[in-house]
Write a protein that binds this DNA or RNA. Structure first.
Length: 321
RNA sequence: CCCGCCUUAGCUCAAUUUGGCAGAGCGUUGGACUGUAGAUCCAAAUGUUGCUGGUUCAAGUCCGGCAGGCGGGACCA
């Protein structure tokens, strides 16, 4: 049996922040603490999603009960389509998430199955009286579709997300950094409608393959978890990847957040005339790349090879089904 | 409920005055240059002009109806 410090180390790995560390201790004393992430159903599940799924997997490994919210109403409120369309997409998303290696014990919850219940609705109303408009809007900065005609739905959304945490009785709320402001709103208000304030864990966001601020399905600048080999190669090859530059470099980010969270060493095949194959750990790769001793094309081909292999189980799982 | 304004390429908008071949920038795609991408240069593609009826030889443009959006007024205090 692993002790609490070891577990905390695992939890913190690859995250940007854990709020707060102290509270994590008491959560870990529970028999089976609950960790959750909510996802708006999305046409494609991509590497950005996969970062959080990987984290959920590691939480599952150390004894957490995992609940994944398929946030159909949230997607609806965010203008992503009709409820029926979103329900279809949610089914597909569940398959993708399972394909990424979560155990059968993982609980998938469709938002609309509980988000109209009486206690839930009452909690949303209470939160509505506790939250200023500007705070609610601000919390949605990184989340909502920006529209010239913002809807009331935009401010209901974060309140529901807070109520979700109570309804699902979560001990850990995991999300990408774009969720931070909503998560903080939750931590500030949950004690007024429930009694279990979750520890909030935030993972890094991936830049888009085009170098854009964020990888997102609406921009088409992602690698989907069920992309085939050719698509993966193609997309990586077309990606923004300035020589010697680490910041905002999506290929470097994939190496950091996918390769080196899985393994110490990483082998890059490189033509003899450019120096031959390399086997590097994270620090060595970063060091070589920033010194321009590792060419982007070699990095790309190494990362492609890794992703093709990493996502192979997903493709197989999806084909079986 | 009333009045005014708006709706044109994936996006931002021109073209409406005076009806006369629907355009630009950005983005996209393809080439050139790079041992990647980007930047740069060259080239190309892209339209139910919100929908609908009418006037006209000819309608994005004028007239009517509808839908959506924005603003104001009215109602109520």
């Amino acid at each position: 049996m692993m002790n609490i410090e070891e577990k905390i180390k695992i939890i913190e790995k690859g995250t940007l922040e854990v709020i707060s560390n102290d509270e994590l201790n008491s959560k870990l004393e529970k028999k089976q603490p609950i960790a959750y992430t909510g996802y708006e159903p999305s046409g494609k599940i991509h590497l950005g999603h996969a970062i959080t799924i990987a984290k959920l997997k590691s939480l599952q490994n150390i004894g957490f009960k995992i609940k994944i919210l398929l946030a159909d109403y949230h997607a609806f409120l965010n203008g992503k389509g009709s409820v029926e369309e979103i329900a279809e997409i949610a089914k597909y998303n569940e398959m993708c998430f399972r394909a990424l290696g979560l155990t059968d014990d993982t609980e998938f919850v469709l938002g609309s199955t509980f988000q109209t219940k009486e206690e839930y609705t009452e909690n949303v109303y209470k939160l509505a009286t506790l939250t200023t408009l500007s705070r609610a809007k601000r919390s949605m900065d990184q989340v909502s579709r920006n529209s010239d005609n913002p809807k009331v739905a935009n401010v209901i959304y974060p309140l529901m997300q807070v109520a979700d945490m109570v309804a699902l009785d979560v001990d850990i709320a995991l999300g990408g950094m774009e969720q931070r402001k909503i998560q903080m709103l939750a931590r500030e208000n949950i004690d007024k409608i429930g009694d279990n304030i979750p520890v909030c864990i935030h993972t890094p966001l991936l830049h888009g393959l085009d170098g854009d601020e964020k990888m997102s399905s609406s921009k088409g600048n992602f690698i989907a978890v069920d992309d085939n080999e050719k698509e993966i190669k193609n997309k990586i090859n077309k990606s923004y990847c300035p020589i010697g530059e680490l910041d905002g470099n999506p290929i470097i980010e994939i190496a950091k957040y996918f390769i080196f969270t899985n393994q110490e060493k990483f082998t890059i095949k490189r033509p003899e005339k450019f120096g031959g194959d390399l086997t590097l750990n994270e620090d060595e790769l970063i060091d070589m790349y920033s010194k321009e001793e590792l060419h982007p094309m070699d990095l790309k081909s190494g990362v492609s090879d890794f992703l093709i292999n990493y996502l192979k189980p997903v493709r197989e799982f999806m084909e079986d089904d």
